[in-house]
Structure formats: C-alpha cells, structure tokens
Amino acid sequence: MAAADEPRIAAWCPEPLAPGSLLERIGTLGLPAATLSLGSLLTLVIVLGAVQHSAELRSAYSFPVLPARWLWLVALGSAALAWSIVGVASRRPGPLWPRLWALSLALTASLVVVGTLAQPLLQSHWLPSAQLHAVVTAVLAAVLSLTPRLARIRPDSPWIARITPLTFLTTLLLILPPALLGSF
C-alpha cells in the first residue's frame, strides 16, 4: 500500500529544520509577528524616503487622493488602527520587540494626529505642510503593513511564510505610486 508513495516521500520529505528554497528562506526569516514588525519599520523608512527624496518633494509634497483639509482624518484612521493592533497583540505571547514596535507606531500615529490638527492653527515653520503630509503617508503605510497582525493564522497555514513578503510588497504598491504620481 505504502510502497508506491515511498519514492515521492523520499524525494520531498524534509529534515525538520531544512532551509528550503530561496523564497521559503525569505518567508521563514521569522514568525509573522516579528517579520511583519520589521516589514512595517522598513515600509515607514522606504515611504518616507521616497516621498522626501528630492528638493521638489520636500517643498511641495501633498497627500494624494484626499484634499488637504481631510489629512487629519487619514491620520486619525492610522492611529485608531495602530492602537487596535497594540490592543490585540499585547494579549499574545511572544518576544518584546514586536510589542515595542506596535506601541511606538501607535504613539507616533497619535502624535501625527495632533500635528495634523495643530498645523493649520499654528501655521508655523517648524511644522511645514509637505513634511507633515509625508509623515502621514509613511505612518499610514507602516500601519497598513502591520495590519495583518489582526488576522488569525494557524501553525499549519502556508500563509505563515507568505504573509510578510506579500503585505510588504502590496503596501508599497498601494502607497508609493499614488503618493509619488499624485504629487506632480
């Protein structure tokens, strides 16, 4: 009965900690809680760098799609999402640094909300509009790339290895083209 299956198992059966293909190695750099946090940090840096990389963008960048007067709403949505991630993730077991990143991001998002509300009132030079718009965009991207932490993934799910690369790429594709094209 089983003899026919043995060659297939012989060809494909791994050792418990075999590294697998290149894609699998990328997907298994860590567990989703940690890799999504790292991906979120990278997203923040990449998006912020992209929307502020030239002098033109640094002086005139504005959040795409929505009128500037609704910027606070985007910031508020990001903060609400970030705090919900903190709330859910803090009840789970696991190492410290993904908790710290979720908390840091939520605090940053909250500060950005205050900034968006205060900026029109202050009209000050220390909070230029282009930089504020850039930070709102980057924080939104970072929070979106951390959002899959709200999902439930079981240990036998293939999504464990896929969710971080997929989220990282999808977020960048969703945020960067409109952010860059909408600014010109």
Binding site: P16, T28, S157, A161
Partner: peptide
Amino acid sequence: ARYLANAR
C-alpha cells in the same frame, strides 16, 4: 518558522 514550514 522553518520547523512549521517543514511540518506542513
């Protein structure tokens, strides 16, 4: 993560 991938 690797262990779970191989167990799957």
